[in-house]
Design a protein around this nucleic acid. Structure first.
Lengths: 206, 206
DNA sequence: GGTGGAATAGACCAATCGGTCTAGGAGGGT
DNA sequence: ACCCTCCTAGACCGATTGGTCTATTCCACC
């Protein structure tokens, strides 16, 4: 979830080809979709020749897409953990996730979509792609639910809260993208379903 | 938002070519994305020759995409109006929208994405595409906000409630798609942000 | 019945697609 | 020095892409 767009081959840390490919793929797929990204463009962005691609990912574009989705998903999990672990409450953790994501969006001027969905939703109508996406998404929810439980939410509510948070995040992500306004994401936590909290008042930024 | 996938040239109502193209485009783009859909496949689905496409949409695929997004958006607006107009409260209207959408998904076995975002988010990085998508999305929100106002929500809350509903809908749509489970959408209204309502308890389907 | 525009039909095109394949370079092990 | 393996490099391929163009059909109108 860090800077994805630029491979930036820093002299002291020459990013290995395989990871350059992953980063370029994740970045491009997020912006232009799986089928919207050509191999030529991808290889140019990764500064890698075609031979390297098919060496590291024998099945070519589809292999790369799955791996790139994994990579991006992992970044998201790291962000989730980093946000919830030090949080005093689930609400606070969720808020931190929103703010971190919003900040990321601001930093990298591009308004990319969710990497996993962008990569895997279309692509070939391949069932493997769909199941892969499903697995990654459920991973986010499961991880979030674990934090919810740890932070004191009862078993039943924990999973529901995680799902709800995920839904808000995806929807907000999309609206933020279409408006190019990261404040949409920052405001999400105010909308969160809080089963046993005080009645909240609407305080959006517009 | 009705049956999109099958052009079905019923003998008594021979759907005009232009609309066959729109339906086929909306249906295919939802499933495979803009760049994931080839003209050949599209024309086959619409049972129209290439000449007709470029007659009705001089700029070809991109023109068709914009028009198809308009068409799909209009269907959505109809569904929104049909749901909110007879509703006694905003909550009830929103619930109806969810249920109608879920039913549609069940009926047409395919788990397509949101037509507007699928069509317009990728596609060419074209700025026109982005602005078109933004306009359509805001249209949904504005329409929903109008119903909210009509149903008694104070001005400030009306727009926020509409936005929140839209965010939930988009997020839920995506989760439902990845799980192939329309109940996700049916359960959305329970998650709705209800500024001044009684505390709600979590009642998800799993 | 003829005429003109709207619409249909599909052959055709350059460009690009994803993918294959061979050749060469880099570097450690012996 | 030699080899062997990992990786890079890009020429090359058939298939498919979106788009153009000409010919033909259809039908309302005079």
């Amino acid at each position: 979830m860090t800077d994805v767009t630029t491979p930036q081959p820093t002299p002291e840390s020459p990013i290995p080809t395989r990871e350059r490919l992953l980063r370029a793929a994740a970045g491009l797929f997020r912006n232009k979709g799986y089928s919207g990204t050509g191999l030529a463009e991808l290889l140019a962005a990764a500064e890698a020749p075609k031979g390297s691609l098919y060496h590291h990912f024998p099945n070519g574009k589809s292999d790369l897409a799955l791996a790139a989705a994994d990579w991006a998903s992992e970044q998201m999990l790291v962000l989730i953990d980093a946000s919830f672990t030090p949080a005093p409450t689930f609400q606070e953790g969720a808020k931190t996730v929103c703010y971190k994501l919003a900040k990321l969006f601001d930093k990298q001027g591009k308004w990319s979509g969710c990497p996993v969905s962008a990569t895997l939703f279309e692509g070939p109508e391949n069932e493997a792609f769909h199941q892969h996406a499903a697995k990654l998404f459920e991973g986010w929810i499961t991880e979030t639910a674990a934090h919810a439980r740890r932070l004191g939410l009862p078993e039943a509510e924990a999973r529901a809260a995680a799902e709800n948070f995920y839904i808000l995040l995806q929807g907000g992500w999309q609206l933020a993208r279409v408006r190019r306004d990261s404040d949409v994401i920052r405001g999400l936590h105010l909308q969160m379903h809080t089963p046993a909290s005080a009645p909240m008042q609407v305080q959006k930024n517009n």
